[in-house]
């Protein structure tokens, strides 16, 4: 048992931060009037509404107990790393190697023997080539030497 409901306090603060940011950032757009709204009107109203809702979420949470927040940090790290790796390398080394890297990096989050990791990576690469490149005719650079 934790003294305060940290989850909702943080959640409320996050909403206040996002809403506040939207209000401030959207100041550069013209508000206009009700009869002729400018591009800034809707986002500013939404930002303000989000701040109010954030207060409604965070304040009651200060007065009740809650449970701990659990995040799968290791899974999150490897999944995001594999996505970024794929995005960064696709145009450099092509679809096949980018896929292999993505599969190997993402499977770091689980317990899989290295041999299986590479077999899996190879088969997924083959599958993506067959489905997306050959089957659906999507345009990818396939190899590092492809244009």
């Amino acid at each position: 048992m934790i003294k305060r409901d940290v989850r909702d306090v943080l959640g409320g603060l996050l909403m206040i931060a996002i809403g506040g940011f939207a209000v401030i950032y959207a100041q550069r757009y013209d508000m206009g009037q009700l009869r002729m709204m400018g591009p800034g009107y809707f986002p500013i109203m939404l930002g303000a509404l989000l701040v109010i809702l954030g207060v409604f979420i965070a304040v009651p949470a200060l007065f009740r107990s809650g449970t701990a927040i659990d995040v799968q940090w290791k899974s999150l790290f490897w999944v995001i790393t594999s996505i970024v790796l794929f995005a960064a390398s696709l145009h450099l080394v092509g679809l096949v190697f980018a896929t292999i890297m993505c599969v190997v990096a993402s499977s770091m989050a689980s317990t899989l023997p290295w041999r299986t990791k590479f077999i899996l990576a190879g088969s997924v690469a083959l599958l993506t080539y067959l489905i997306f490149s050959l089957g659906l005719g999507m345009l990818f650079p396939l190899w590092p030497w492809s244009p």
Binding site: F86, L127, T128
Partner: peptide
């Protein structure tokens, strides 16, 4: 699942 999710992830990015 550990054999499936890397494949799902690749399909997502593609």
């Amino acid at each position: 699942y550990r054999l499936l999710y890397p494949a799902i992830l690749v399909f997502i990015v593609i």
